[in-house]
Design a protein around this nucleic acid. Structure first.
Length: 279
DNA sequence: AGATCTACCTGGTTGC
DNA sequence: TGCAACCAGGTAGATC
């Protein structure tokens, strides 16, 4: 389940494989995997200038493409649960879960594989972005915020912290894993309202969130099931989880049994002893 | 405003 | 062995 560190790792491993190459052919094997006003074929002729990331979106920026009268700026990819981006050698056959293929001018093939079809590709243009509510509402990048700016996002929010961290309009790129891990490290109960936390507690949370994201990026992300880097390697950060996926196991700090509950519609794991419920 | 529920989708796991 | 039930989870949209 790619969140910010996994998408960042994919972008970093993909960059040397595709940067500078030109897209000769673009096919959507599953039409439902392409969103927005443009067909995937609008990318043909574009040269991949740079790769980037925004929240959980991987971004390919293109030079030199215009579809009809519109300038095409690039491609956004949301991997959701099971999406993967892989570069294969010339003539590699598509697999049962390949949803889209970009053929590059050196013969290599960039596959978008997605078993569950939750993920999508979206061709970017001025029109495509202005139509895209999710993009327009995306909150700031957590690794680009200082503690003061981070705290300001939550201070006046009445919703629970877990729900706020998962809300991409509040802060971008956090999913279930890093929400649980950062709340545990900060000793904050997932249901604590933003308004119930003081400036110091929010600053502490910011520090732990930055740590957890940075450590995970250094470990090339967390591989639970499907996630792989663009080179096909598994990440290693799953070995550093303190709460995620550890329901019923002892807390690494106090030994209490970790509790699994549903918060904000998600499986949530926390330590009932270390993470006190604030009012 | 916030919480909760449902839909989307299907491979993997669990239970009988 | 076979198969049904259930789970994982990000986002959109509806409802309370």
């Amino acid at each position: 389940m790619p969140e910010l560190p996994e998408v960042e790792t994919i972008v970093r491993t993909l960059r040397p494989l595709v940067q500078g190459k030109t897209i000769l052919r673009a096919q959507a094997l599953n039409p439902g995997s392409v969103e927005g006003p443009h067909a995937l074929t609008a990318l043909v002729g574009g040269r991949i200038r740079e790769l980037g990331r925004r929240g959980k979106l991987a971004l390919l920026y293109l030079d030199g493409v215009a579809a009809q009268t519109e300038q095409i700026d690039g491609l956004a990819v949301h991997l959701k649960m099971t999406g993967r981006l892989f570069v294969y050698p010339k003539d590699t056959a598509t697999g049962p879960h390949t949803r889209a293929v970009l053929d590059l001018d050196d013969g290599s093939r960039l596959f978008f594989d997605d078993a569950r079809k939750f993920g999508y590709l979206r061709v970017l243009s001025a029109r495509s972005l202005s139509d895209w509510g999710f993009w327009q509402k995306l909150g700031p990048e957590p690794l680009e915020l200082d503690a003061t700016a981070f705290a300001a996002l939550f201070r006046h929010r009445g919703a629970g912290m877990k729900s706020l961290l998962l809300n991409q309009a509040v802060v971008a790129g956090i999913g279930n894993i890093y929400a649980d891990e950062s709340l545990f490290r900060a000793a904050i109960h997932p249901a604590t309202k933003g308004t119930a936390l003081n400036e110091t507690q929010l600053r502490v949370l910011h520090g732990h969130l930055v740590d957890v994201l940075t450590e995970s990026i250094e470990a090339c992300g967390s591989s639970i099931r499907d996630y792989r880097t663009a080179r096909g390697d598994a990440g290693a950060f799953q070995n550093a989880f303190r709460v995620y996926g550890r329901t019923g196991k002892p807390c690494v700090c106090c030994g209490a049994e970790l509790q699994g509950v549903t918060v904000a519609g998600r499986t949530t794991v926390f330590c009932p002893n270390c993470q006190n419920q604030a009012e």
